[in-house]
Amino acid sequence: MLVEAHISEGINSEDVPSQFLDITLASAQVSRGPFSIQVPKSRDLMRAERLGNGWVNFSIVIDSGDYVTSQYIPVPMASRAANGSQPAAQEVLGHAVTVPHFRSFRVMNSSMRRILTSEGGRPDGVVPCEWLKYGSQREDETRIGEVHTDTDSGSTDEFKYATQADSTITVGVSASASSGWSGDGSVKISNHFGGSGSFPNPAGTLKYADGDFYYQRYESNNEPDCPGKYMNQAVSALGDAFRGTNSPAANPYGGCLHDPHGQARADPHGGTFDQDRGTAEGYSGIANVFGFSFGGGTGFSNNIYQDYTNNSNVEQYYCGNGPMPDVPVIYNSSH
């Protein structure tokens, strides 16, 4: 098993790296049962933490006989990565994090098998994977939430996407640059630009909320521990937010009165209800770039607010798929 740091290099003015290096930090032989791998402090680890705004995107590769599996996973390594999140802070201070299940083992390619054989099966004989920028970057609208505003005149909502909007987005790998992508874990994308976006929504709005992200394909040097010949990943967020063009599903309860989790009320003539939440709704298809459908597995930001103001003449009700107010999507009596 290899534990590597996914380190960016050569960042351009749009915050897009010209290459990534998956630098090996630790390796070990693992058999069934509990295992432990010591990973020493190193310049590479500290550099990765610095570049990742306190986060380190690890690449973990496991070889088993003729099979291999891998995944990218972001880990908070410094207190500034926690950004108010208690679990992240606990991971930093308590030194523990749960790693998601790996994807199924796949057949090892001949090149990797040959090197492992020549190295007597020692995984540290594998040369680090190097990813070089392939083609041009692409800016794409990426789904970060959704807006539901009641149809009563005077009912409004402001969607706020704050600074430090670190996002967790899946990584695609493939043997081809244009197709055959499959997910290989996820990486943390920092909002290096420090931007924050918000947009007002009039009565009757039923739209997704989007933000701009840069995406880039990379070609590997095809060293054996690369999870694919090509990698496709989100590399930076502009930190903006705007109303998207597509519409999400309406209130599944048909109205807040029938929501079993209850409802929140804002009285007419100026009642304001500002909803805070820890994570946004996770979506499987937040963007489709270079033929890969990206997903957001754990939410997009620590800081998403939606501010509802009722300047109508009647009471407004808000509800969701759990106890108010901590729900990822807020519905209303209209939709």
């Binding site: 208690q86 679990p87 805070d276 107010p325």
Partner: peptide, 14 residues
């Protein structure tokens, strides 16, 4: 109230 361990600060005004 918190979500994922993060303290939530909701607000209201009228």
């Amino acid at each position: 109230l918190s979500s994922g361990g993060q303290v939530l600060v909701n607000g209201g005004g009228i």
